[in-house]
């Protein structure tokens, strides 16, 4: 089997692994194994992409208007009452709190954007083709992300690097302080709230960095 033949069948075997002949080519050919490694690396990195941006508030305003017009919500004493969004967010946090530690962990990871659980649950079985799966733990991934974010800022707007670095340090200090407090008293719900907010702040920093399209 030559490279052209291998690459012809690659779309079909990259997820599931190939037959012995294809595997043999892959083992013996640096070009094809590098290609497979790159493609797999792209797919793996894509799994870690984060839902980072919230929609503008006008989206909810539009939905609310339509709900009222369509009569999908039950009127209370003549007028529809929507609770302020803060309360909705708070109660959202409360029910996370009431849930398992897993849910809390998921939310925290979500906050810095690592959809870690998803990787381990719904993904295709590990393919037989050489795989380069990032084995880093979420915490290490976060350090890595920090470095990448600063790199990105340096590339796009060098003048702002110092600001971003300084604020990254202060938000990480916030996270550390909240964590330390939770270790001291796991039942301190106020400290849990601070931790979630600290992650929200960190997400903001990342979003702002991303928004610098520069050029």
């Amino acid at each position: 089997m030559n490279c052209a033949e291998f690459q012809e069948v690659l779309p079909d075997i990259i997820e599931s692994g190939g037959n012995p002949e294809e595997e043999a080519h892959l083992k013996s050919c640096a070009v094809c194994s590098d290609l497979v490694q790159d493609l797999r690396y792209i797919a793996d990195t894509a799994k870690l992409l984060l839902p980072m941006r919230d929609p503008s508030p006008r989206v909810w305003t539009g939905i609310r208007g339509a709900l009222q017009r369509e009569g999908l919500v039950r009127p209370l004493a003549g007028t529809v009452r929507f609770r302020p969004q803060a309360a909705a967010v708070l109660s959202q946090r409360r029910w996370v709190r009431g849930g398992s530690m897993l849910a809390v962990a998921a939310l925290l990871l979500f906050a810095i954007g690592i959809i870690w659980l998803r990787n381990n649950s719904t993904r295709q079985p590990q393919p037989a083709v050489t795989a380069r799966v990032p084995a880093a733990a979420p915490a290490a991934a976060a350090d890595d992300d920090d470095a990448q974010m600063l790199n990105f800022v340096q590339h796009k707007s060098p003048a702002l690097l110092a600001t971003y670095r300084e604020n990254l340090e202060s938000v990480n200090a916030y996270i550390r302080d909240a964590r330390r407090r939770i270790e001291q008293d796991p039942n301190d719900m106020g400290a849990h709230d601070h931790l979630i907010r600290a992650y929200d702040e960190k997400a903001l920093l990342y979003e702002m960095a991303m928004a610098r399209s520069g050029e």
């Binding site: 490279c3 052209a4 690459q7 690659l10 640096a30 070009v31 590098d34 290609l35 490694q37 790159d38 690396y41 792209i42 990195t45 894509a46 870690l48 992409l49 984060l50 380069r132 992300d145 990448q148 974010m149 790199n151 990105f152 960095a209 991303m210």
Partner: peptide, 27 residues
Amino acid sequence: DGPRKDIGTRDRVLAGSIDRLNLERAI
């Protein structure tokens, strides 16, 4: 499209080097 131009040239370029931000832009 297609892989032909890679054939015979070794250009392993990416592993370990792309970050999520660049990937977002590329997507």
